[in-house]
């Protein structure tokens, strides 16, 4: 295992080492100590590395991740795994706002709570939160799955497109165009797989499913394909 202390090396040195084409040589495991809340740790990874960050991380940790597995033994600041494409990011503590924002793929696991706007504009990422999520989570979600094992805050799933949302506890309120939907066998099966992948021991039958009512402007065919100033009416 390769070890790097952020008390001795800069964040830029860490990220450069992880981006180095030789980063995989001599083993794929990295151990990063003394993060002390620094921002932009392990960002833009593009190899099948296993990176452990031992402590609390700051903003945008593991952003733009592809292929790598990043585990944080602590809390993370704003925007963990933002725009993740693939791979796995696991946070052993709590996450601040906008966890997994705009993520296209991969799995983000937050073992504690996530605060406001978790999964904002998610585009295919899967997010599993062991605790609660704050207000406006999955805002404008377009694709992917968000699993909340605790409670969800106000305006859950506001202006959602097609992401699928599962909540085990209470939802304080639903956002515009977000509704509860029936849990069918296919959803329980999907949820079982996500929980297993995330290492969460909950029964899928305890969850409710939420998604888009498809009533907002962009869902109406009459509004489709008409550009401003279009003369084909």
């Amino acid at each position: 295992m390769k070890k790097l202390s952020l008390a001795e090396h800069s964040v830029r040195e860490l990220n450069s080492a992880l981006h180095d084409p030789q980063a995989m040589d001599g083993g794929t495991e990295w151990y990063v100590s003394d993060p002390d809340g620094r921002h932009a740790l392990a960002c833009g990874l593009n190899d099948e590395l296993q990176v452990t960050i031992d402590g609390h991380a700051g903003y945008y940790c593991a952003g733009m991740n592809q292929h790598a597995t990043v585990v944080v033994n602590g809390t993370v600041g704003v925007g963990v795994a933002e725009n993740m494409m693939s791979g796995l990011v696991r946070v052993r503590g709590n996450a601040s706002q906008s966890a997994g924002a705009t993520g296209h793929g991969g799995l983000l696991v937050i073992e504690g709570n996530a605060s406001a706007r978790c999964g904002i504009s998610m585009k295919g990422i899967d997010i599993v939160v062991g605790g609660d999520v704050g207000h406006m989570s999955a805002f404008m979600g377009q694709a992917g799955r968000l699993v909340v094992c605790g409670d969800a805050g106000e305006a859950f799933g506001d202006s959602i497109y097609e992401a699928r949302l599962y909540v085990r506890g209470q939802v304080e309120s639903l956002g515009a165009d977000c509704i509860e939907k029936p849990m069918r066998d296919e959803h329980r099966e999907e949820l079982r797989g996500l929980l297993a992948h995330a290492g969460m021991d909950f029964d899928p039958s305890e969850f409710r499913r939420y998604g888009s009512a498809r009533e907002l402007y962009n869902f109406h065919v009459d509004n489709a394909g008409i550009e401003q100033g279009d003369s084909h009416e």
Partner: peptide
């Protein structure tokens, strides 16, 4: 405002760390 301001406090690794709710 950010965790990194707290990183040098004694016993911080065992502290309860959380984001105050809005």
């Amino acid at each position: 405002s950010e965790y990194r301001a707290l990183a040098r406090l004694p016993g911080i690794s065992g502290a309860r760390v959380w984001e105050p709710e809005p």
